[in-house]
Amino acid sequence: MKAEVVSTHRGGMWSWVFQRVTAVLLIVMLAIHLIFTHILNIGELNYDNIADRLAHAGLTAVDIILLAAGIYHALNGLRMVLMDYWFTSRTRALILTIVLWVVGIAFMAYGTWALWPWIS
């Protein structure tokens, strides 16, 4: 019987572990984010009702965790896909990893800036 392998851990053990840790975080945080923003809300979203929600420190914390976990999970997932196609050698994979970290940190900074009025 031919061996069939699902998780080959190509991206490294920590990338595999963090992909799962962020997955669990995302399910919980995204559920809270969607329920509070789109199910328990008051119809049309506007700056005032969004600001009212984010005035609760817990919901701002949810958004920040969501931002960090989402960016990590998305870019690490993209990295796994791209490493299947063109970034197959060690050097190319390393370049890809560095580029994605820079992109990720930039997105994290931009998203944190947008949430800053409720963080500070």
């Binding site: 019987m1 031919k2 061996a3 069939e4 392998v5 699902v6 998780s7 080959t8 851990h9």
Partner: peptide, 11 residues
């Protein structure tokens, strides 16, 4: 290929 619990179940 690494030996895993997923071997041979048609995944």
């Amino acid at each position: 290929p690494r030996e895993t619990a997923n071997v041979g179940v048609g995944l």
